[in-house]
Simulated scan of single mutants.
Amino acid sequence: MPKTVSARALELAERRVPFVHARVVRAQAPASAHPGDEAIVYGDGTIDGFVGGMCAEGSVRTAALGALHGGGPLLLRVLPQGEAVFPETPGAQVVVNPCLSGGALEIFLEPVLPPPLIEVVGHTPIAEAFVALADVLGYATARSLPDGPPAEHTGAVIVAGQGRGDAEALRAALDAGVPHIALVASRRRGSALLDELGLGEQERARIHTPAGLDIGARTAPEVALSILAEVVEAVRSTRTPPQVADRPAEAVDPVCGMTVTVGRDTPHLTAEDEEFWFCGTGCRDRYAAGLVG
């Protein structure tokens, strides 16, 4: 990546900020972008870098946000209206962009998502084995204090203190709204602890105890494996990771029919108490001229 884009990407990765890396892999004259041009697309639709003019950028923005919200890597083919369509290829998406002045583009969109963050409470053999296995899967783990709040965007909290700070850790995870909370305890001890906390039905349902899937585990590593399997199941059931901001609204350009992402810089017009958004200023001006005429 160009230095500025690569430096920004590294910074975002360190801060656990999701983004999409967009790279032009093929360009046909007279497109303004060239192979190797790159950009970062943020969760709010903001773009850093260059992958084409306003019309191409709008198509990239909308497709990138779809990729970020569970769509996965995507090869985007942006064609001017009337251009022959590329042969269909698995994993490719074709967008016919009426406002392009000419030239086709192929842009690879790769979502860059931080690995799920799992906080582990306790230093028991099960806790140690869990951290080691989670590292193999590429998950990020953090050791937290029982009475400390989980870090922002924590995907799961595993309470494995074996009686040391378990109640405080469960309360903190519940208050923070952590999506997956697991308590390492026998069924009897787990139930007694939840009674002790005075939890209502909804809060009790959010705590998985005994932690882990029932795979007949006996040793600490086997129990850790069963807990990690349950975490994977929970993480994969959610298409959009918790770090990803809500997807911006979309609208259909009333002139060319393109789907555009609504943002601060999206060309916009209010007419007869209705709001309209456009792929570019050309479509907006044509629509405005029709209203006057």
Score class of each variant (00 low, 15 high):
residue 2 P to K: 11
residue 3 K to C: 09
residue 5 V to A: 07
residue 5 V to C: 00
residue 6 S to M: 10
residue 6 S to F: 14
residue 8 R to H: 08
residue 9 A to W: 00
residue 11 E to H: 09
residue 13 A to D: 05
residue 14 E to S: 15
residue 16 R to D: 14
residue 22 A to T: 03
residue 23 R to E: 13
residue 26 R to S: 13
residue 29 A to G: 08
residue 30 P to E: 07
residue 30 P to A: 13
residue 33 A to K: 01
residue 33 A to P: 05
residue 34 H to V: 12
residue 35 P to D: 08
residue 36 G to N: 07
residue 36 G to A: 08
residue 39 A to H: 02
residue 42 Y to I: 01
residue 42 Y to R: 10
residue 43 G to I: 07
residue 48 D to V: 09
residue 48 D to F: 13
residue 48 D to K: 04
residue 50 F to R: 02
residue 51 V to R: 02
residue 55 C to R: 00
residue 56 A to F: 12
residue 58 G to T: 14
residue 60 V to K: 00
residue 64 A to W: 02
residue 65 L to K: 06
residue 68 L to F: 06
residue 69 H to S: 10
residue 70 G to L: 12
residue 71 G to P: 02
residue 75 L to Q: 07
residue 75 L to V: 09
residue 77 R to W: 03
residue 78 V to G: 01
residue 79 L to G: 01
residue 80 P to H: 10
residue 82 G to V: 00
residue 85 V to M: 10
residue 87 P to M: 06
residue 88 E to Q: 13
residue 88 E to Y: 05
residue 92 A to R: 06
residue 92 A to F: 03
residue 97 N to T: 14
residue 104 A to S: 15
residue 104 A to I: 04
residue 105 L to C: 10
residue 107 I to N: 02
residue 112 V to R: 14
residue 115 P to S: 14
residue 119 E to L: 03
residue 121 V to M: 15
residue 122 G to N: 08
residue 122 G to F: 02
residue 129 A to D: 06
residue 130 F to E: 02
residue 132 A to S: 07
residue 133 L to P: 00
residue 135 D to M: 05
residue 136 V to L: 14
residue 136 V to C: 07
residue 139 Y to F: 15
residue 140 A to P: 03
residue 141 T to G: 06
residue 143 R to G: 10
residue 145 L to V: 04
residue 145 L to Q: 12
residue 146 P to V: 10
residue 147 D to P: 02
residue 148 G to P: 00
residue 148 G to E: 15
residue 151 A to K: 12
residue 153 H to F: 15
residue 153 H to A: 11
residue 158 I to D: 00
residue 160 A to F: 07
residue 166 D to K: 01
residue 169 A to M: 09
residue 171 R to C: 04
residue 171 R to D: 11
residue 174 L to I: 06
residue 177 G to M: 09
residue 178 V to R: 01
residue 180 H to R: 13
residue 182 A to V: 08
residue 185 A to I: 07
residue 186 S to T: 12
residue 190 G to L: 13
residue 191 S to I: 04
residue 195 D to S: 07
residue 195 D to T: 05
residue 197 L to N: 08
residue 200 G to K: 06
residue 200 G to H: 11
residue 200 G to W: 10
residue 201 E to K: 09
residue 205 A to H: 07
residue 205 A to G: 00
residue 205 A to W: 10
residue 206 R to T: 11
residue 211 A to N: 07
residue 216 G to L: 04
residue 220 A to T: 05
residue 223 V to E: 05
residue 229 A to L: 12
residue 231 V to M: 12
residue 231 V to F: 13
residue 237 S to V: 00
residue 237 S to A: 15
residue 241 P to K: 05
residue 244 V to S: 00
residue 246 D to G: 13
residue 246 D to M: 08
residue 247 R to K: 15
residue 248 P to D: 08
residue 253 D to V: 10
residue 254 P to N: 03
residue 257 G to N: 06
residue 258 M to K: 04
residue 259 T to Y: 01
residue 261 T to N: 08
residue 264 R to P: 03
residue 266 T to D: 06
residue 266 T to K: 00
residue 267 P to R: 01
residue 272 E to G: 02
residue 274 E to S: 13
residue 276 F to L: 14
residue 276 F to D: 01
residue 278 F to M: 07
residue 278 F to T: 09
residue 280 G to A: 15
residue 282 G to I: 13
residue 282 G to R: 14
residue 282 G to S: 14
residue 285 D to M: 11
residue 291 L to V: 05
residue 292 V to I: 12
residue 293 G to V: 09
residue 293 G to Y: 06
residue 293 G to P: 05
residue 293 G to S: 14
